[in-house]
């Protein structure tokens, strides 16, 4: 085979995974149900892959919301005011403790009864993922902000910046760079956890796999494809985060603040 860059070696290996599994001498595997070589297989594959959009858009929207909410929750966590810090702790502890699956069910079935808000599958999924993740994002942001030496904020205040300006122009740009790997982790985690939204009926990757199994009765083959789908998505995200890290890291050479 032609030499591939290491970046794509892993991707190629994942794509070969089903073939490897089938080549292990297990003649019971019936790959034709998802084979691109047969008419029916192509239809099935298309059906499975069509879930990618929902999985990705749901995870991405949830990530955006959880970053914003997480940041808003992190700010009182670093305040001098004890009450603010307590409020931050309360939020983090509560939402970190709620398992995602019950939270999804609660948002989808509970919110209409309590608040009269009936979200569709998609937005119920986004909301549950975002709330759950925001507690983790808040802790990541808090750690990131606290890792910036206090002298930075002091210097900012001596050149007249107020709290917001200090955060916006001095602290956060430096903190984001440090927490980027952790944010990448959370995104990968979110993509995987979005599979749980299948239980309320959103046709994302996992739901589609389950639906196909009902008609084709080939669980192993279809779930293998499902795993490979997640694998590819998350490997791509990983590469994307690395690229971002390199890009952001390159504009700060040396270290001014020991």
């Amino acid at each position: 085979m032609i030499a591939l860059s290491t970046r794509f070696k892993w991707l190629a290996m994942c794509l070969l995974l089903p073939l490897l599994v089938s080549g292990c001498g297990n003649s019971n595997l019936k790959w034709y149900v998802v084979s691109p070589l047969t008419e029916n297989g192509r239809i099935n594959l298309k059906f499975l892959i069509a879930g990618t959009w929902n999985t990705l858009s749901m995870s991405f929207l949830a990530l955006l919301i959880s970053i914003v909410v997480g940041l808003l929750i992190a700010i009182p966590g670093i305040a001098k005011n004890r009450g603010a810090r307590k409020a931050n702790m309360f939020y983090v502890e509560i939402f970190r403790s709620i398992p995602l699956l019950p939270l999804i069910l609660w948002v989808y079935y509970g919110l209409p009864e309590i608040a009269g808000i009936q979200l569709d599958y998609f937005w119920a999924g986004v909301l549950a993922l975002a709330i759950s993740d925001s507690a983790f994002e808040a802790e990541i942001f808090r750690a990131g902000i606290q890792s910036i030496p206090r002298g930075q904020s002091e210097a900012a205040s001596t050149v007249g910046l107020n709290y917001y300006q200090n955060m916006r122009y001095v602290v956060l740009p430096q903190a984001i760079k440090r927490i980027l790997p952790a944010l990448g982790n959370q995104f990968a985690y979110m993509v995987k956890m979005s599979a749980l939204v299948s239980v309320i009926g959103l046709q994302e990757l996992t739901r589609r796999a389950n639906e196909l199994i009902v008609t084709e009765y080939r669980a192993l083959e279809i779930y293998t494809i499902l795993i490979v789908e997640y694998l590819i998505i998350i490997l791509i995200i990983g590469q994307g985060v690395r690229w971002l890290e390199r890009k952001m890291g390159s504009d700060e050479s040396g270290n001014a603040n020991q």
């Binding site: 210097a155 001596t158 007249g160 760079k177 504009d251 603040n257």
Partner: peptide
């Protein structure tokens, strides 16, 4: 007061980014 008072620190505290 801070508008009238400049400060230079031991550790410089320049903004590295």
């Amino acid at each position: 007061i801070r508008a009238e008072v400049g400060m230079v620190f031991q550790q410089f505290n320049l903004f590295p980014h």
